[in-house]
Design a protein around this nucleic acid. Structure first.
Lengths: 233, 233
DNA sequence: GATCCAACCAATTTACGATTGGTTGAGAGA
DNA sequence: TCTCTCAACCAATCGTAAATTGGTTGGATC
């Protein structure tokens, strides 16, 4: 089945179709008539018309979709920058992979651009997580710590991406119940890992910051898998 | 009208409602029964129930919306408007830095997960950019090429982040006019750079893909600085 | 005077038939 | 035997109408 061949018996159909598209005033959305109508209008069979449409589609001049119709121009991309829609089409594992890809790079950038003010806030957040009396408090300061890293990049779009990831995280793991109501243990893995991240940023160690963040997220992932109801980091 | 007062005659309703929420196993989305059903189930009048619901809503424990229903947890935020807000607080240079941080990592991930279908589409997009008769057509296929790389990661959240960056790009550079109306020259830097990126992904060369994407974006940035009205990539 | 109740309102979801591009298989025609 | 045609069918989508749901109102009830 070859759709690029215009030299075959469908040459007339393609030619007729091209002429039709050139002459006809299309509606605002660039939609052309249904195949059944169009084949009758051009006086060709639907099979022939579909071959011609296939040719034009391969050329990128039109695009088609079941139930929608056939349209002039390029196929529009279905953007999914909507949190709610996105959260329904993903899962915690996929989201974790995305974090593992993005957040180390944010930490790397932060190591380059963090100001003393950011470093002070990072230290403050770290202290608060250690002092936390409940998991709820811990999560609050942990979230702020991670966001401060993103703020330290001093890059507004990057911070926006981070916020989007965070919003997704809330939406995806929504409805969970934390099984462990007590506060985090003093030897919780996150404490030392946070320390490593902050130290690397202080030392302007970009590779170290990225690596430390990656290690941290891997620990979080392990915890997430081991204990489904807890995704603290 | 005071919704925080539990000492009034609606105390029983609030108490009953709290007991109901504690005992009942809610559906996955945290939606609780319609007011009419719930009032009957709890044996209280709808007016009373609505008072109690108002109390819990003021406490932030539930949220309601006409036509949707009543749900546990915090009202979800719509980050859709954030694009517009973000675009006002950033600039092309900052956005370019964010792309330089994110997109190489997307290319790296794509090198690992791209399917033959993705590779074929990448090749197709590349051919179309070379055939483009106008800058408009070129940009269309260039955008699709870059998005195909993001799709090749097969990671929904990552694709969402990429779309957000793209939406930002459109918003930030909105209103520009390309000064050069002719089509891209055959030796445009992007052609060979795209080739390098695609080849690296085909060879499963993760580091190569990331490096090639970084190199490409650096070229784009140079062009952006040299010729303000052109940000083709 | 407060509460209850029924009806109504507007936003949203659900249900269902019609439409549309895509596919299959029998039959005609060469 | 091979190709084309035609009709039917399939699944995704659209359009519309009915049902659902939180919010509001006004008279009835205690």
């Amino acid at each position: 089945m070859l759709v690029f061949d215009e030299a075959g018996s469908n040459r007339t159909a393609v030619t007729q179709l091209r002429a039709y598209l050139a002459q006809t005033r299309l509606p605002e959305d660039g939609r052309l008539p249904p195949e059944r109508d169009l084949s009758a209008a051009l006086g060709v069979t639907r099979t022939e018309l579909r071959k011609a449409l296939g040719t034009l589609e391969a050329e990128g001049q039109i695009w088609r979709h079941v139930g929608k119709g056939t349209f002039m121009g390029n196929r529009p991309v279905d953007t999914l920058s909507d949190i709610a829609a996105l959260s329904k089409r993903t899962n915690p594992a996929e989201l974790m992979r995305a974090r593992m890809i993005i957040e180390p790079e944010i930490a790397r950038a932060a190591a380059l651009t963090a100001t003393p003010m950011h470093l002070a806030e990072l230290r403050m957040c770290q202290a608060r997580t250690r002092e936390a009396a409940t998991w709820r408090q811990y999560e609050t300061w942990d979230t702020r710590l991670h966001r401060t890293v993103a703020e330290a990049t001093q890059n507004t779009p990057l911070l926006g991406l981070f916020d989007m990831l965070n919003a997704l995280r809330r939406a995806v793991t929504w409805g969970r119940l934390r099984s462990n109501p007590v506060k985090p243990e003093p030897d919780h893995h996150s404490f030392t890992e946070h320390e490593t991240i902050i130290a690397a940023i202080e030392n302007r160690d970009m590779n170290g910051a990225a690596a430390a963040m990656r290690t941290h997220l891997q620990s979080v992932e392990r915890n997430l898998l081991a204990q489904q109801s807890s995704e603290a980091d």
